[in-house]
């Protein structure tokens, strides 16, 4: 049954190519002038999708570590700070959080006498970074806890303080282990950046929506959109594999 459905999909596409009444691939046919203009228009959102995702991921990786460390403290107060942040932030769906940051946060700033306008670009970055940081923090916590206690003890006995122990002994080992889940999160950010279209960010999804409105060809245009994300994610996967191989060979010696 499942196999039959799988077979149907390429058949549908192929049949669609011949009968132009239901399929209109011409809208994104790069061989024709108008089609090429449309394709370039769609792809022009790529830059912002990548930029938003990369900046959000960098912030999330730093913020996640800052949130994770109190979660590993001995004191219950510090651990509570970590717990509250993680539980609160990861329970907010992305879209409401985006609205809150984009429409609500400037009002909060104004209340404190600061005039900080939030444009769609930074609104999207702040939302993605915040939302993701709760997950990144949990990944860090798991990674750091997986390093044997003896490593910290050995570092202490040669006189390293807390920051030095983290910096030179624990984190270099933990990062190698958490690279795969961190890469997952990065892919997740790239996909979730599509929500930025809702607040007017001209990234991939927004471009597709705009073109659909003028061309009335949602199936073809959104198919290309899906392909664009696929290509992005495959590139990230390949990059991470390469990074893993480089770092992994280190530990094995």
């Amino acid at each position: 049954m499942r196999r039959a459905i799988l077979l149907l999909i390429p058949l549908l596409v192929l049949s669609g190519c011949s009968s132009s009444s239901t399929w209109g691939w011409y809208v994104i046919n790069p061989m024709t002038e108008s089609g090429w203009i449309n394709v370039r228009f769609l792809i022009s959102g790529m830059g912002d999708t990548i930029l938003i995702s990369v900046i959000a991921a960098v912030i999330s990786i730093v913020l996640g570590l800052i949130v994770a460390l109190p979660g590993l403290a001995k004191s219950r107060g510090w651990r509570l700070v970590n717990r509250v942040y993680v539980e609160l932030v990861r329970s907010i769906p992305l879209l409401p959080m985006l609205f809150w940051v984009f429409y609500g946060l400037p009002i909060v700033f104004r209340e404190f006498g600061m005039n900080v306008p939030i444009d769609p670009f930074w609104g999207a970055i702040i939302t993605l970074a915040l939302s993701d940081s709760a997950f990144t923090a949990e990944i860090y916590r798991a990674g750091i806890q997986s390093i044997a206690k003896g490593q910290t003890e050995a570092a202490q006995t040669i006189g390293l303080n807390y920051v030095q122990t983290m910096r030179y002994v624990i984190l270099p080992q933990a990062i190698r282990r958490i690279l795969p889940p961190l890469a997952n999160q990065f892919i997740y950010i790239v996909k979730m950046s599509a929500f930025a279209s809702v607040i007017g960010m001209q990234e991939l999804t927004r471009r597709a929506n705009e073109l659909v409105v003028t061309e009335y060809r949602p199936l073809e245009i959104y198919s290309l959109l899906v392909l664009e994300y696929l290509v992005l994610v495959l590139i990230i996967s390949a990059g991470v594999r390469w990074l893993e191989r480089r770092m992994g060979s280190d530990e094995r010696g």
């Binding site: 044997a148 003896g150 490593q151 003890e153 050995a154 570092a155 202490q156 006995t157 040669i158 006189g159 390293l160 303080n161 030095q164 030179y168 002994v169 270099p172 080992q173 190698r176 280190d250 530990e251």
Partner: peptide
């Protein structure tokens, strides 16, 4: 701690560093 050295049952060497780096980490950083 600066007066007392410790050798553990499980060695607890730092696996991501070379032998030389294991030895120089304390003197250089601490």
């Amino acid at each position: 701690r600066s007066d007392v050295g410790m050798v553990f049952q499980q060695f607890n060497l730092f696996p991501h560093l070379t032998v030389l780096e294991n030895l120089t980490l304390g003197p250089i950083k601490a």
